[in-house]
Simulated scan of single mutants.
Amino acid sequence: MASATHNIDGPTGIPSDQDLRDGAGGINAALADTVAQTRNYSDVDPCTDSCWWGIPISSTNFPVGTYLYRYFTANKGDFVRVTIAWWSHADCSAINNCNFDRLDTDLHLGVRDPDFQWVPGAWSASWDNNYELVEFVAPKTGTYRIAVYKTRADEPSNYLGIALVRLHRVYIPLVLKNFP
């Protein structure tokens, strides 16, 4: 989802109350490959480019009502897209027969700027899926904080994936010539 930066039809984010024909956008395969190859294992060292984290979570290392943080750097004007996803509990008696898919954990996603202020529009708190997504243009240069908030957990453990895409914006002037 983090690398789905190609808008095919409709918004690239996941706004509420809209019919999304292409989900979160079309996948940029080269970018997805770059993100997949750049795993960050640190709780405190920031990603300096696109990357991802895989984190086992439990009531011990990430209790309900608390935040889990990961960090990244961005320059003012960079386009940033952050996604989280976690396991749901599917009850499948056979590979093609699933009775239900229950969410036993509910997480929310936000991003704080280098001054520890919430980035405007960079908050996602849906309750009916096992993913959240935010995208924004970095308002300043510095180290940002990905903030995952645990609202509910009806299970002892789960697994959280966080992916970050940071695209540098480059201004290229368009030069047109008049031809006879």
Rank of each mutant, 00 (worst) to 15 (best):
F179I: 14
A32T: 04
T143F: 04
N7P: 12
N96H: 13
P120V: 10
V119N: 02
G54I: 15
P114W: 04
D22H: 06
G54R: 10
P180S: 11
D104L: 11
F116G: 09
G26R: 00
R39I: 15
I172C: 11
V170S: 14
Y41R: 14
P11Q: 03
R169Q: 14
G26H: 02
G26M: 08
P46Y: 06
C92Y: 03
K177D: 04
V80G: 00
P46A: 10
I84C: 01
R81P: 01
V119M: 05
T141E: 04
S58H: 09
Q37I: 15
Y67G: 08
D22L: 10
T83Y: 08
S16L: 10
W87Y: 09
N99W: 15
T73C: 06
P120S: 10
D78L: 07
G142A: 09
F136N: 00
A147P: 04
P15G: 04
R166E: 10
A85I: 13
D78A: 03
D19Q: 12
F179V: 05
A4K: 08
H6S: 07
T73V: 08
K76G: 02
F100K: 13
F62N: 02
D45E: 15
Q37M: 13
D49C: 08
W86H: 00
N178Q: 09
D33L: 12
L107Q: 05
W123T: 13
L107P: 00
T73D: 07
V165T: 01
C98W: 07
V134T: 05
W86E: 01
E135Q: 05
A36Q: 05
C98P: 00
V137F: 10
H168K: 13
P156I: 13
A36G: 01
G142Q: 05
Y171R: 12
S93A: 15
P63Y: 06
F136S: 00
D113P: 01
A24H: 05
D113E: 07
R70I: 11
G25E: 03
W52Q: 12
G26A: 04
N61V: 06
G121E: 03
I84V: 07
A163R: 07
S157M: 09
S59N: 15
Y69G: 14
I84Q: 01
G25V: 05
A74W: 00
T105K: 06
W53D: 07
P173D: 04
R169K: 15
D104T: 13
L176F: 03
